[in-house]
Simulated assay, not measured.
Amino acid sequence: MYVYILTNPTKTTLYLGVTSDLNRRLYEHSSGRGDANKFSGKYQTDLLMYFEICLDATQAIAREKQLKGWTRRKKDALINAFNPTWEAIDLETWAG
């Protein structure tokens, strides 16, 4: 299971999610980019900035809820520690 954070091209909006298949979920976010009825489509959040692996769904959901309760400043600090350049993470090439 994964907890992940996406942003938009201007890095003004963050989206937090949970998935068992991060590659598939990223594809779904990029495919729905134009769908204004969905959060990721409305705010164009399809750039992966952060992710972490959790042991199971219960842990992932608890972590997602914890992160959603954080301030933007605290989320930004988490991303900065993990991905200081704020470049979109490509899971195929990212060395972490």
Rank of each mutant, 00 (worst) to 15 (best):
M1H: 13
M1W: 12
Y2S: 07
Y2V: 06
V3M: 09
V3K: 00
Y4H: 05
I5E: 00
I5W: 00
N8V: 03
N8S: 09
P9Q: 11
T10Y: 06
T13S: 09
T13I: 13
L14Q: 00
L16E: 08
G17S: 09
T19N: 06
T19S: 13
S20C: 05
L22I: 15
L22M: 10
N23C: 07
R24A: 14
R25C: 10
L26M: 15
E28A: 11
H29T: 04
H29I: 01
G32Q: 06
R33W: 07
G34Q: 13
N37S: 15
N37I: 04
K38V: 06
K38T: 15
K38C: 06
F39V: 12
K42A: 14
Y43H: 15
T45Y: 01
D46R: 02
F51T: 01
D56M: 05
D56Q: 05
A57N: 15
A60V: 07
E64A: 02
E64P: 00
K65M: 08
Q66N: 08
L67S: 01
L67M: 14
L67E: 06
K68E: 11
W70Q: 14
T71M: 05
R73H: 11
K75W: 03
D76S: 09
A77D: 13
L78E: 07
N80Q: 15
N80T: 14
N80G: 08
A81C: 05
A81T: 07
F82Y: 15
N83A: 08
N83C: 08
W86F: 15
E87M: 12
A88R: 09
T93R: 14
G96C: 09
